[in-house]
């Protein structure tokens, strides 16, 4: 459209494309919100996973965010009042363990893993150890958690920036 006395660089074709893209953008925003609520952008319902291997159960999140706290829980059957939980050393290089609940009685380093020893009550049938961790690297993390001399679970996590 031309205006007799208005000097303006209006461009309707461009404007219409812009409006269409704007509306596409709104739909994308809505999809991102839904995905995030479902847990596709970090910890949430679709991200959390539980894997059982024999007597060992590992609960973890598949999708994490850089520097955001997450938990990894290992449940096992204590023997002789103790449970020895192992975590692969390679995994511990990618995350920083902030807290272990309950407090381990001792932590030992082996060739390719670290052993956390927890004291259990004599009649305890199961012990659940929770590791509060912060991922320190973007990308795919591979970890292995289990019970020393028993089964272990391999898991993969993806860390968003």
């Amino acid at each position: 459209m031309a205006y007799r006395d208005l000097e303006i660089d209006e461009e309707m074709g461009f404007q219409r494309v812009g409006w269409r893209l704007e509306r596409v953008g709104w739909v994308v925003f809505a999809l991102i919100i839904v995905a995030a609520l479902a847990g596709l952008c970090g910890p949430g319902p679709l991200s959390s996973s539980t894997t059982r291997e024999g007597s060992v159960e590992v609960q973890y999140d598949r999708l994490l965010r850089l520097e955001a706290q997450v938990t990894l829980a290992v449940t096992g059957v204590p023997e002789g009042g103790e449970l020895h939980v192992t975590l692969s050393s390679a995994y511990l290089e990618d995350v920083r363990i902030e807290e272990v609940i309950p407090e381990p009685a001792s932590v030992e380093t082996a060739a390719d893993h670290v052993v956390y020893t927890f004291a259990a009550a004599a009649d305890a049938e199961e012990l659940r150890a929770v590791f509060v961790a912060k991922p320190e690297r973007i990308g795919r993390l591979r970890g292995e958690a289990g019970v020393e001399g028993g089964p272990s679970v391999s898991f993969t996590q993806y860390v968003f920036p």
């Binding site: 205006y3 209006e10 461009f14 404007q15 812009g18």
Partner: peptide, 13 residues
């Protein structure tokens, strides 16, 4: 410039 800043639009004539 049009991509990033957009263009002005006449709304009343």
């Amino acid at each position: 410039s049009r991509l990033i800043n957009g263009t002005p639009l006449v709304v009343v004539e």
